[in-house]
């Protein structure tokens, strides 16, 4: 039996339906982006176009960093719940009894966390760009619309989400407690976020080539992470709690 996108879809659709009916998930997906659209706006409108370039870049960098916090943190709780949560609810065993392969199960789970994250992150970024174009000083708007800033946001949003999701699922597959899984998955996203913070705050000056290079590296890391998660996914351990 080969890889089946029908089974992947079944898992993803089920997850998305479950999110839609879960007040906690809806709350998290609403409050976090709301917070991360208000904070950059404050940064944006507090920035004085006449201040020196370094300070201006700092304000803009902080604003854009808030945008990247969304794909880093939003999927963490979802992916951290994905396996240990099902295990606690007793819904994991019936799924593992079906012909689904672990790769299909993991991709299905990942897509369910990925899709809403990307949609929300891009919408928030779109609102931010629109607000900058409409209300910010032209000098600030020009700086925000700089090619590398937009490129970093567009490229790193899905890649950062991918990293956060695989870290969350990996932790979820090995954890026995949902709370611990959620804490560890958030911690797991911090190293990459730290690098992006250095880029956003211009500590590391990024050219277009470097941004693309870093994105390619992160893509490779995401793909490796998927294989690593598939390797640690052990049906027997998940069902019995016993190592094979």
């Amino acid at each position: 039996m080969s890889f089946s996108w029908t089974r992947v879809r079944a898992i993803t659709v089920k997850e998305l339906r479950d999110y839609r009916r879960n007040r906690f998930v809806i709350g998290t997906m609403t409050v976090l982006p709301l917070l991360f659209i208000i904070l950059p706006m404050i940064q944006l409108f507090n920035a004085n176009a006449k201040t020196d370039t370094t300070n201006l870049n700092l304000h803009i960098g902080l604003s854009l960093l808030y945008m990247l916090v969304i794909p880093a943190f939003l999927p963490s709780s979802l992916s951290a719940y994905s396996i240990v949560g099902e295990r606690e609810q007793g819904t994991l065993e019936p799924v593992l009894i079906t012909p689904i392969r672990r790769e299909e199960f993991l991709i299905g789970k990942a897509l369910a966390a990925f899709a809403p994250t990307i949609v929300i992150a891009y919408i928030v970024f779109g609102i931010f760009l629109a607000a900058a174009a409409l209300f910010a000083h032209p000098a600030i708007t020009t700086a925000i619309y700089a090619r590398t800033h937009v490129l970093v946001q567009l490229l790193f949003t899905p890649l950062l989400a991918g990293w956060a999701i695989w870290v969350g699922i990996a932790v979820s597959a090995r954890s026995t407690d949902m709370r611990v899984a959620q804490q560890l998955s958030v911690l797991g996203t911090l190293p990459l976020l730290a690098i992006l913070a250095l880029i956003s705050l211009n500590v590391i000056t990024v050219s277009t080539a470097l941004a693309v290079g870093l994105a390619a590296a992160l893509l490779a890391i995401d793909l490796l992470a998927w294989r690593a998660v598939a390797a640690v996914f052990d049906r027997e351990r998940l069902i019995t709690g016993t190592r094979t």
Partner: peptide, 13 residues
């Protein structure tokens, strides 16, 4: 098919 001891249904669905 295996029907486990606990039904394991998605309760929000």
């Amino acid at each position: 098919s295996i029907m486990p001891e606990s039904p394991g249904l998605y309760l929000r669905l």
